[in-house]
């Protein structure tokens, strides 16, 4: 324990002796972890949004005015048996009109003059998770296009596009995240490399008086660990603050139109923040390892 304290003292002394180098490394790691945290927040919120869209996914069957009860029952029977269907609700033309009016809110004046039976009778279908598969859903839609059915609508095509966008966004965030992580690794590695060059004479002397490899290397690892930990703490704290501000005032950052998606920005779960915080020390140690492996000949 006393030895670890000695190593720690040495590492701190070395960092103090090169404040510019240490400061630059700290700042860069901070910025990298701020970016990673922001990517994490965006990814998490997009995933939540996708889940919410998937859960609210619906399909509709519109009956023609001449549809008989037997024809309607045939449709209901198919829905009852389908594993894609979580449930359904039948709307008369009057109920459909009332729901449409309530959705339009203050703009419902545009419906003035239209009769209560202007909209057709319909079935609003809630889908299970399996219903998110566009091919399966299309098969169900085909089966539902029976006599007495005017139209079957489902949002699978739109959902497919949304999924594609999410996948691309995730891949992009992953690529940029890896890139900034790599940059941070290079910076930590270079900082330690410069420290190794700076202390070459000291290393020679330590080896001369019988220092083990570990004795020479541990202070460098501690320096990397300290830089990584403090840098990630800085970046993650800033990201957490940013996230807290956005949650308090979503309108400050989010365009007004996004309100239609009922988007409520959410903070990362604590496991996410802990993972980001642990990334700093790990980055410091890996950066040091890379540098010592290539530049320290003891």
């Amino acid at each position: 324990m006393a030895r670890l304290f000695t190593f720690l003292r040495q590492a701190l002394t070395h960092l103090r002796r090169s404040p510019l180098l240490a400061g630059a490394a700290l700042l860069t790691i901070g910025v990298v972890f701020l970016l990673l945290s922001v990517f994490g927040l965006l990814g998490y919120n997009l995933a939540l949004l996708a889940e919410s869209v998937g859960q609210n996914l619906q399909a509709s069957v519109f009956f023609s005015d001449t549809a008989s009860e037997a024809e309607r029952e045939a449709v209901r029977e198919i829905l009852r048996r389908s594993p894609l269907v979580a449930g359904f609700e039948e709307l008369t033309p009057a109920q459909a009109m009332a729901r449409f009016r309530s959705r339009l809110g203050p703009d419902q004046a545009i419906l003035e003059g239209l009769g209560e039976d202007w909209l057709p009778a319909s079935l609003e279908i809630r889908l299970t998770a399996a219903g998110r598969d566009p091919a399966e859903m299309e098969r169900l839609a085909q089966a539902l296009r029976l006599p007495g059915v005017e139209d079957v609508q489902h949002g699978q095509a739109w959902l497919e596009q949304f999924d594609r966008f999410l996948r691309a966004a995730r891949l992009g965030a992953l690529a940029v995240g890896l890139l900034v992580l790599l940059a941070a690794l290079v910076i930590v590695s270079n900082t330690i490399r410069l420290a190794v060059y700076d202390r070459q004479d000291e290393i020679v002397i330590l080896k001369l008086v019988g220092a083990s490899d570990a004795f020479v290397k541990v202070p460098f690892y501690l320096e990397g660990l300290l830089l990584g930990s403090l840098g990630s703490l800085l970046g993650v704290a800033l990201a957490w603050l940013l996230s807290a501000v956005v949650q308090l005032e979503p309108g400050w950052l989010l365009p007004e139109g996004l309100g239609a998606l009922a988007l409520e920005p959410r903070n990362l779960p604590w496991e996410g923040w802990v993972a980001l915080l642990c990334g700093g020390p790990a980055l410091g140690v890996i950066g040091t390892r890379l540098s010592l492996g290539r530049h320290l000949r003891v």
Binding site: L208, G210, A211, D213, F215
Partner: peptide
Amino acid sequence: PESRRHLVRRKIGV
């Protein structure tokens, strides 16, 4: 071996 050299160096002042 490299891992044991420091033990010998401790027996030598330079």
